[in-house]
Amino acid sequence: MRDDLPEIMVGGVVLAAALGFIIYAGQAAGIGRSSDSYALKASFRSIEGIDVGTDLRLAGVNIGKVTGLTLNAETYRADTVVSVAHGIEIPDDSALVVSSEGLLGGNYMEIVPGGSPFYLSDGDAISDTQGAISLISLLMKFVSGQGND
């Protein structure tokens, strides 16, 4: 029995560490989290660089995530669902924009707040959207001289 004690202690530490990693992964993925957010919908012409799980920011602060992306077969637009943390009120004339972190950075969704005294609620749609701007097409226009109007 005394010979087994170190092995039992090491096994207990390994199990505790594994359980800690499982709990951390569950919290990071949002598993088991109560509904502490509300959903907003939007439709984009181009949502290049955005996936489910992409950050939603307001004034540079992460306030939610993209939770759904589908192609609307009738309008050929990308229908998007974002979740916003409860307690953050978004004016109903706000815009939802695909922004870039820089030339080599990834894209994220940004809310540009409006000035309306009325706020969006769960399930409402944001009508003012701006999709992704293709850096390659901008460079091609610049190189070919089409941007000089």
Rank of each mutant, 00 (worst) to 15 (best):
M1A: 12
L5S: 06
P6R: 09
M9H: 01
V10L: 11
V10A: 13
V10S: 11
V14G: 08
V14A: 14
V14M: 15
V14C: 13
L15Y: 00
L15M: 09
A16Y: 02
A18L: 15
A18Y: 03
L19T: 00
G20M: 12
F21H: 10
F21M: 13
I22F: 12
I23Y: 11
Y24N: 13
Q27Y: 06
Q27W: 04
Q27K: 14
A28M: 08
A28S: 13
A28N: 02
A29S: 12
A29T: 00
I31C: 13
I31R: 15
I31E: 10
I31V: 09
I31N: 12
G32A: 08
D36N: 13
Y38F: 15
A39R: 13
A39H: 07
S43V: 00
S43T: 02
S43D: 03
S46W: 02
G49S: 11
G49C: 06
G49M: 10
V52H: 08
V52D: 08
D55I: 01
R57N: 10
L58E: 02
A59C: 04
V61M: 11
G64P: 04
G64Q: 05
K65E: 04
K65I: 02
V66W: 03
V66E: 03
V66G: 02
T67D: 12
G68V: 00
A73S: 06
E74I: 00
T75K: 14
R77G: 05
A78H: 01
D79W: 01
D79H: 01
T80Y: 04
V81Y: 05
V81L: 09
V81P: 05
V82R: 11
S83Y: 02
S83W: 01
V84S: 07
A85L: 11
G87C: 12
I88Q: 15
I90P: 07
P91E: 04
D92K: 07
S94F: 05
S94N: 05
L96Y: 03
S100R: 12
E101F: 01
G102Q: 11
L103K: 11
L104F: 12
G106V: 03
G106F: 08
N107C: 15
E110R: 13
E110A: 14
I111H: 07
P113I: 01
P113R: 09
G114R: 06
G114M: 07
Y119H: 06
S121R: 06
S121E: 06
S121Q: 09
D122C: 01
G123Q: 05
G123N: 14
G123I: 04
D124I: 00
I126Q: 05
S127C: 04
S127R: 14
T129C: 11
G131Q: 03
I133E: 12
I133V: 14
S134W: 01
L135V: 05
I136G: 12
L138E: 14
L138H: 07
M140Q: 15
K141A: 10
S144G: 09
G145T: 01
G145H: 05
Q146V: 01
G147M: 13
D149A: 15
